[in-house]
């Protein structure tokens, strides 16, 4: 059967339940957090040239980058909380039984904390204190 080929899974999406999407979201948010760390390393590396450093940080004050930061906050929170969920699954059998409930609590907590953090991050645009 030399001509057998592997079917591309991209043609249809496998209908996994919350666990599959928890895994996918964990990968995506992990990548985003990694990109954020790279960006952060670059901006901190410019600290010896205050001119560039200040320019970069002024750029971060831009509304789009602030919104991006809210997204990053969610990515960070989700990745951290789902990471705790995975650790719970690894160590406590009861977490396996309640895996879905644990997932939705963690997701809910991540969304809630993102809203709180988002309000703080975006407040300057509502109070008009943006320069």
């Amino acid at each position: 059967m030399g001509s057998a080929i592997a079917v591309s899974p991209s043609s249809t999406i496998y209908k996994g339940k919350s666990g599959q999407w928890a895994f996918v979201l964990h990968r995506i948010t992990g990548f985003l957090v990694f990109v954020f760390i790279l960006l952060h390393v670059v901006d901190v590396a410019t600290v010896n040239s205050p001119h560039i450093y200040n320019q970069i940080h002024q750029l971060y004050g831009n509304v789009f980058l602030r919104l991006f930061e809210v997204g990053l906050l969610f990515a960070l929170l989700y990745h951290a909380l789902n990471g705790l969920r995975v650790i719970m699954i690894d160590f406590f059998p009861s977490a396996i039984k309640n895996e879905k409930a644990v997932f939705f609590s963690m997701l809910g907590l991540a969304v809630l904390l993102t809203i709180v953090g988002g309000v703080i991050i975006l407040r300057p645009f509502f109070t008009g204190s943006v320069h």
Partner: peptide, 25 residues
């Protein structure tokens, strides 16, 4: 990576992820 797709798919109702986790431990 504990995506639980195996547990959802098992036609015999085996708690597959639970078994994998028991082996891990």
């Amino acid at each position: 990576r504990t995506s639980f797709n195996c547990t959802e798919a098992c036609p015999r109702g085996i708690s597959v992820t639970k078994a994998v986790e028991e082996v891990k431990r």
